[in-house]
Design a protein around this nucleic acid. Sequence first.
DNA 1: GTACATGCAAACCGTTTGCACTATC
DNA 2: GATAGTGCAAACGGTTTGCATGTAC
Lengths: 154, 154
Amino acid sequence: MEKLSEEKITEKAAKIIRAHGLKRTPQRLKILIYLMTHHNHPTAEMIFNDISLSDEKTGIATIYNTLNTFVDLGFVIEINNGNDGSTHYDFFAKPHFHVICTNCGRIADVEYTDFDKIETKMRQETEKQTGYITRSSHIKIYGLCPDCQKLENK
Amino acid sequence: MEKLSEEKITEKAAKIIRAHGLKRTPQRLKILIYLMTHHNHPTAEMIFNDISLSDEKTGIATIYNTLNTFVDLGFVIEINNGNDGSTHYDFFAKPHFHVICTNCGRIADVEYTDFDKIETKMRQETEKQTGYITRSSHIKIYGLCPDCQKLENK
DNA sequence: GTACATGCAAACCGTTTGCACTATC
DNA sequence: GATAGTGCAAACGGTTTGCATGTAC
């Protein structure tokens, strides 16, 4: 896993924000950096709590607004684990998909080397069958995480 | 597309309900038959409205309860299109995945012949990388439906 | 200076829950 | 007859919105 200095990651986040025509605000920077450095698939609430620990306050509405903006622009994705009613978010750097525990809702990443190839094929097939112009995809696998497997065997 | 008589489909729905250890109630039958005969990926609300046209009333709470039961048992799946805040449902007979229009939220089915093979591979890879025991998967493609493509070119 | 972003609180709305009633097996 | 399912209405909780204030460019 790449290890970037705080400066480097701020620079990188700022670049992403500017590249999408957004104004560089401390809130957006903080939220994006949070997503880039955490791989815990947080909810808006989790981000709110973690970020509120630092000096400046960020409103929950701003978190939601910002996340929606990021999702619309495509570099952050939404995940519904179906366990709690809330939406989880993930910075979408390298292609991967998600496994979700049907018992506790825990989300893990899976990096799959053939992902690109498969995705391309599926998108081609989709366009052929439906006439949609495809832009992106989202794959979720459901199962039981190691911890919940142990609990079940008790 | 298979065309079943009303009797046949009722029988089939009843069989599914009984096979999962559920009591056969008029409400469950009606909801399941609705899902089996409509491919419009309805929300709970849509089912409620359509079903309410017939004689017997079915409460919205019952719709939600029933849908959650069906989803837990695995023969109905949930889809969040990300456009409205509500959950859409789909009877999951033959393997397929979904395309969702990012503009209007319309959901379409894609039947993919190699789906099984790809799914198996992805699940194997998932189990290897994460230690999860996988049970099912859910693939969503995002894009622009034919109607919204036309609107955009105006 | 202007257009956009933030933040608070209130409103919103899809979904769940408590509880008395009813139907299934 | 026991157990499970239904339905109403009220509660819940995640998310959005209106609007006044603040900030990036």
